[in-house]
Design a protein around this nucleic acid. Structure first.
Lengths: 138, 138
DNA sequence: CGGCATCCGTGACGATACTG
DNA sequence: CAGTATCGTCACGGATGCCG
């Protein structure tokens, strides 16, 4: 994974995220965004309906969940399936790409969760060192 | 996933990101944030100085890079090493935790970059389907 | 139930100037 | 070089209300 097939001219860095106007940055932000990441991971566990998702991703507002799902659907990570019944029944599930992304995210999240004790300790010593004269977002 | 080991009082999901007030969410946002992710990946390739980093992460402002680095240092992902010389010489490098996080991020980014052609196609068909009469951020 | 439209505050973010 | 300080903007994101 990741090795380069030579002979292919420069298609390698065609979508390099380090470039400021690269479209891959936008997609990456959708995937790694505050709600995007959690939404993808929630859908990786199970196909869910709108309000089930809302409950699973604790704290997300209706508007943001809606926006997040639209962005992910537009980028081809999520499939929205609406069954024409009364009352409405809409389900969200992942595409193959979405499932892969969710898998990578899961690994990252598991890592972070597992390292939290160490993170909390690091914060304390950081704040202790610089007189706690901080502020700025968390 | 999600089952509780009885007898042990909830230590299992002690840092579950799906919970709204969990500190792991904040750290995850630092790691996956717009500039956090790129900064970590840049430092995974090499130890860098402030302005080298600024050039590598195309588009980041001084202020945001500074904030990003502080957040990552505080969470124990980045080490800031200042040598007391004139002119100032400051280097940033990853901790073991930071390197692991960067590795996971790299995999995610590689995936996204590789799938961009498909993403672009998905967007076109999405926009085509719904009259393209939209807007809202990307 | 599954949304979209609207109002609106807070803070993220960029540009610029300044310091050590 | 490596930042901090200050200012202005605008879009993120929550609350509310309405519709199919």
């Amino acid at each position: 994974m990741g090795e380069v097939v030579e002979g292919d001219v420069g298609a390698v860095d065609a979508f390099d995220v380090f470039e400021r106007d690269c479209p891959s940055r936008v997609t990456l932000e959708h995937v790694t965004g505050r709600w995007g990441a959690l939404t993808l991971c929630a859908l990786a566990e199970d196909t869910l309906r709108f309000n089930e998702l809302r409950r699973r991703v604790d704290g997300v507002s209706e508007k943001m969940l809606s926006r997040t799902l639209q962005a992910l659907e537009r980028d081809g990570l999520v499939i929205r399936e609406a069954r024409p019944v009364q009352p409405p029944h809409v389900e969200y599930r992942l595409t193959a790409f979405g499932a892969q992304a969710a898998g990578r995210l899961r690994e990252l999240i598991d890592l972070v969760e597992g390292r939290m004790p160490e993170v909390l300790a690091a914060r304390e010593s950081y704040d202790a060192a610089r007189g706690a004269g901080w502020q700025r977002g968390q």
